[in-house]
Design a protein around this nucleic acid. Structure first.
Lengths: 343, 343
DNA sequence: TAGGTTGATGTAACCGCTTACGGTGAAACG
DNA sequence: CGTTTCACCGTAAGCGGTTACATCAACCTA
């Protein structure tokens, strides 16, 4: 592994000049610059990132905070792969890398466990990380608030956070829900129920809000008994659907705040002797792979999955390069019409 | 951010002693050790990773090599989330982190593009990475060979590689396929076909081998026309199934080397007027989420998804800590019987 | 008591790079 | 022709740790 010093010797210049060639090329004479570059290339020189980070007090790494809820091993992120790919490629364009932080077990650890925000924030300092990307794993919205307040640049995915250097990217949940309800209304439904995510969950609340708007726009009235809360998991969709079916006047259409719950609802409906879409129309949210494969295929509100990663990367790079607080990014959604609502 | 020097001053010792407290605790007097630890805790001291990496010439990071084939944006890794979780948690136990390497765009880059193995290997040197974890993205088995030969400790997931410091972890593909065929034989089938992955693909070839053994064990003979190659994607399963259906004597059972292809085959069978499982029994491989959700639910060979990550982490940690070449890890598979074969 | 151990700690070099500062020579200026 | 300006480059002081080596007191041993 060639070092800057070696290059310097071979070129008959000082290490400072070698460093300048890479960091402030305009300040070094063109001739010597090219000589340095040529030798550097010959020796396949790569600057040592640790030394550079030590010296500049900043690295080219972004931390990725993503834990899973060990109580729910069945949790699957609806678009993890696309998110990571989007993040990685957008970050690459700036020469940045993604560091998946370990959450425990460092023998050298002095203070608290790393499972908490404090631990993560410490990691960002230890590694001179440029910032953090926070990926929701279903139940850490509160913890994310702590990150956001810490002052470390961070952008959350699908969780609204606020802080001096924090922002987030999310889907147009209101609009997405609205388009779903409109679709159902357009098909003639007037008894439209919804299965929501956990109460208090930001995306879920927004979807409820869109649902409400959709009803009102269509001159339909809000019915408390048509709004039942789930937790985004499939089984909660089943339970919720069972409750809806037990109503005196069951809905003819259901908008579920996640595809998983929609699938759960589908199972419950079928178990209850209903045919989908003939007796019950169903719309989901997310457009996970399963949606296209269940029978009938699920009409759903698709999110711009790679868009999350790209937008998150853009926001964090902006904050790193000095820009101030970033506006939250709201990604458009798209209604994907398949078979679960009839035609 | 407290530094070692500050601790040293407050404790009235030298920085060397502070360092020793964390790295070779047994060499420092118990009393002073505790004093240092106490002050360190009070100041919430965290050793600077860059400085440490610079000095020791090794970091606590493992590189993750994972690109996607841009020509196939529909490719989905069958168990990415479990893999990452397994990797991360197992690495955490050793205080290691996972670095998702960027593949291009570093303005400071002197040599070749980072899209090639050379670029990645350079990254490992730049960052003093302990090693690399290579995740197959469908079509880079050859490139992985280059990594393995580079001398950098690396472990590949689901791709057989060989090299001085390389090993891999894979499923018991032969055994898995064998169990699938046995299951079909047990159900009375004798005309059993298979849809394979790309010819030359290691896991696929192994599955073919298990398929063959299953046939022979049952006294059935190999028929060339019953073996048709796909590429693991769904559409190739459809095409393959169509070819099988066009045979003079079509199979009554099909073992597909991936769930995606099994789903494709399912669609083709249905389009061809066949009922599954009555007219055609189907077994897949992977046990992706979709498998449980299609109708009929897919009988499939499940892989130990988190096991990949854990095993990979274990192997790479072993090589980092000086152990020699590691034996490849073969994870057991498990036949998950659902509805697609009847009962 | 001289000499050898041993345990605990300090000293200082070093890891490879960045950058503030100062020096040099040539060109530009009055 | 003396002085200023400026482009270019070297010197050296860090960045925050690690560790080989030196030091030193206390304790053994013959």
């Amino acid at each position: 592994m060639a070092t800057g010093r070696e290059i310097a010797q071979l070129c008959g210049v000082s290490v400072a000049t070698v460093s300048r060639v890479f960091n402030q090329p305009e300040t070094v004479n063109e001739e010597t610059r090219e000589r340095v570059l040529r030798i550097a290339k010959e020796l396949d020189y790569r600057p040592n990132e640790a030394a550079r980070a030590l010296s500049t007090k900043q690295s080219t790494m972004i931390g990725l905070v993503w834990d899973t809820d060990h109580r729910r091993p069945d949790w699957r992120h609806p678009y993890l792969q696309d998110l990571l790919i989007g993040l990685k490629s957008a970050l690459s364009a700036h020469g940045y890398h993604l560091l998946m932080l370990a959450t425990s077990g460092d023998a050298r650890e002095v203070g608290a466990s790393l499972a908490d925000p404090v631990g993560y924030v410490n990691m960002t300092r230890r590694h001179h990380l440029g910032g953090l990307v926070l990926i929701d794993s279903g139940s850490d919205a509160e913890a994310f608030e702590a990150f956001a307040q810490s002052g470390v640049p961070c952008v959350a995915v699908d969780v609204a956070v606020d802080g001096p250097k924090a922002t987030y990217v999310t889907s147009d949940n209101v609009g997405g829900a609205l388009s779903a309800v409109r679709h159902l209304v357009g098909l003639g439904h007037s008894r439209i129920a919804t299965i929501t995510g956990p109460v208090g969950n930001q995306p879920s609340d927004a979807r409820v809000s869109g649902y409400r708007t959709g009803l009102l726009d269509a001159g339909l009235s809000w019915r408390d008994e048509y709004v039942v809360a789930g937790d985004f998991y499939r089984s909660s969709g089943t339970v919720a659907m069972q409750r809806l079916l037990a109503l005196d006047e069951p809905p003819t259409a259901v908008f579920a705040a996640s595809d998983e719950m929609a699938v759960g609802a589908l199972l419950a409906a079928r178990a209850g002797g209903l045919r989908v879409p003939e007796d019950l129309a169903l719309v989901g949210f997310d457009d996970i792979e399963i949606a296209a494969v269940v029978d009938p295929a699920l009409t759903t509100v698709a999110q711009d999955k790679p868009g999350f990663g790209v937008a998150a990367a853009k926001a964090i790079m902006a904050m790193i390069t000095g820009a101030g607080r970033q506006e939250p990014v709201v990604l458009p959604t798209r209604l994907v019409v398949r078979g679960s609502c009839g035609s």
